[in-house]
Amino acid sequence: MDFRIFTEPQQGATYDDLLTVARTAEDAGFDAFFRSDHYLHMSGDGGAGPTDAWVTLAGLARDTTRIRLGTLVTAATFRFPGPLAIAVAGVDQMSGGRVELGIGAGWFKGEHTAYGIDFPDVRERFDRLEEQLAVITGLWATPAGRTYTHDGSHYPMVDAPALAKPVQEGGVPIIVGGSGKRRTPALAARYASEFNAAFQSPEESRVLFERVRAACEERRRDPDELTMSAVGVLCLGDDEATLARRAAALGRDVGELRRNGFAGSSDEVVDRIGRYAEAGATRLYFQVLDLADLDHVEELASTVLPQVS
């Protein structure tokens, strides 16, 4: 099992805020620092405003040394796949091969409306996602010196130079997630190195993992090639006062967080981790929403990780 920190900077965070959390996570021994890819806050006033995911990850690639970096998840509606493949490969080069690309169909209509981004119906969004995955992986897999052509409905490409290349052998690892019953498992089985069950209970996650494993078997791919992961909000407190304070800072109820996240005492969080492990997860993302509470990250590392590593 490995453990990652996941943040939501669209709620209001500067690059320096993200760098501080990423370095704290790196020093504390976490495997990765991930961020969402959103342009509009979902509650509150948005604070300092959003930052672009791949711009900030490029900075973190140079300002950190060990920790892996990535998105949960980039929306396929935000960028053309050719330029996205170039950007991600460039950040991979800048980081020395520490980048991962989480990508999804996009779901938040409000940010699309706010920033003038097309928001087609869900079927077309999944069509675009599937084609983006084909293009991105095709560009990275094209041998040096060759060109790449794609005869697609949404992103036709002719004689693309298929540069720049990631430094990771085989390309940047791709993460696909979601609760779709048919297309999501099929896309994960075809393109991903990781499947992520976001904000699902251990029992719900088990069902999603089983669907992806079945989709792998249909493609005659070894299901064990995919990492199965889950994500949930963190609210740790070994006394009720600390727990209540941290829940209040998130605007959430302690009882609700205990039911749906990694919340409660260190022993409770360890138990929750164990339930996800039993469901088949080998990687967990802890969603840290209060980026000013660096003690939260450090306490998770010092009180929980030693019991489960």
Score class of each variant (00 low, 15 high):
D151G: 05
L250I: 13
H112N: 09
D45W: 02
D45T: 03
A249R: 13
D253E: 13
G102M: 05
L40D: 09
R275G: 08
N196D: 11
G116N: 13
R246K: 10
G82I: 12
P306I: 01
T7R: 02
A248P: 00
A244G: 07
I86Q: 14
A25G: 10
S229R: 06
L250V: 03
I273R: 12
Q132D: 15
H296I: 04
L305H: 07
A188I: 04
A13R: 15
L234Q: 07
L129A: 08
Y115M: 13
R128L: 12
I175N: 01
D159V: 00
A230M: 07
D271T: 14
E268W: 03
P161T: 01
A25K: 12
A198D: 03
L305S: 08
S193W: 03
T56G: 02
A214P: 00
M1A: 13
V288K: 02
L208T: 02
A141C: 00
V207C: 02
A186K: 14
E299R: 15
S229I: 04
F286A: 15
A263D: 03
A215I: 01
P143D: 11
V212K: 05
I67K: 02
A114R: 14
G251I: 09
G138D: 00
E130H: 09
V21M: 14
I175V: 15
F262C: 13
E169F: 00
G171T: 07
V231P: 00
L236C: 05
L294W: 03
L289A: 12
D222T: 05
L129R: 09
A188K: 03
V135S: 10
G97K: 04
T227G: 06
S266T: 05
G264Q: 10
R272S: 06
T14V: 06
A281R: 06
G237V: 00
I5G: 09
P156C: 09
G138S: 00
H150C: 07
G145E: 05
E124D: 13
V55C: 07
A277S: 14
T24S: 15
D52W: 04
G47A: 14
E210K: 08
T64Q: 08
R68I: 01
L84N: 02
S229E: 07
K109L: 12
D295L: 01
L257K: 02
A164T: 05
I174A: 08
A61K: 00
F30G: 10
A89Q: 05
A48V: 08
T65M: 01
